[in-house]
Simulated scan of single mutants.
Amino acid sequence: MSAYLLLAVSIVSEVFATSMLKVANGFKNLLPTLAVIVGYGVSFYLLSISLKTIPIGIAYAIWAGVATALTALVGMIVYKEKFNRKKLTGFIFILSGVILLNVNGGH
């Protein structure tokens, strides 16, 4: 399987786990807490496998940047958090940074 596909699944798993943190309510709700543990476990495992092929700086920049942006989107869509210019600017900076690292710092 492609390292970048593994990285993408790792990102989705991390976003899922982070989203479940809110529902876990300080680890007081069992099923969401288990979802957090499994989600992060899968995420870190797949991230570690992708690092066999993708340089760590590139992989982590993609993982952290894309996961941060997607988690913010989940917050806005699922948890009805507000969207404003500052968040839009943050998305632009995050995605620009990930793109720049991939263009200039590739294999």
Rank of each mutant, 00 (worst) to 15 (best):
Ala3Ile: 08
Tyr4Gln: 03
Tyr4Ile: 00
Leu5His: 08
Leu5Ile: 15
Val9Arg: 08
Ile11Thr: 05
Ile11Glu: 02
Ser13Ile: 08
Ser13Gly: 05
Phe16Thr: 01
Ala17Tyr: 08
Ala17Trp: 01
Ala17Val: 07
Ser19Met: 02
Met20Ser: 13
Met20Arg: 05
Leu21Asn: 01
Val23Thr: 10
Gly26Glu: 02
Pro32Met: 09
Thr33Pro: 04
Ala35Asp: 02
Val36Lys: 03
Ile37Asp: 01
Ile37Arg: 06
Gly39Gln: 01
Gly41Thr: 05
Val42His: 00
Phe44Tyr: 15
Leu46Phe: 12
Leu47Lys: 08
Ser50Gln: 10
Lys52Tyr: 12
Thr53His: 09
Ile56Asn: 12
Ile58Lys: 07
Ile58Val: 15
Tyr60Val: 03
Tyr60Phe: 14
Tyr60Gln: 02
Ala61Gln: 08
Ile62Phe: 08
Trp63Val: 04
Val66Ser: 07
Val66Asp: 05
Thr68Asn: 06
Leu70Lys: 00
Leu73Phe: 12
Leu73Glu: 03
Gly75Asp: 00
Gly75Phe: 02
Gly75Asn: 04
Met76Lys: 11
Ile77Leu: 13
Val78Lys: 13
Tyr79Arg: 05
Lys80Trp: 09
Lys82Pro: 12
Ile92His: 07
Ile92Cys: 10
Leu95Ala: 05
Gly97Asn: 09
Leu100His: 10
Leu100Phe: 14
Leu101Ser: 02
Asn102Thr: 11
Asn104Trp: 15
Gly105Ile: 08
His107Ala: 15
His107Thr: 10
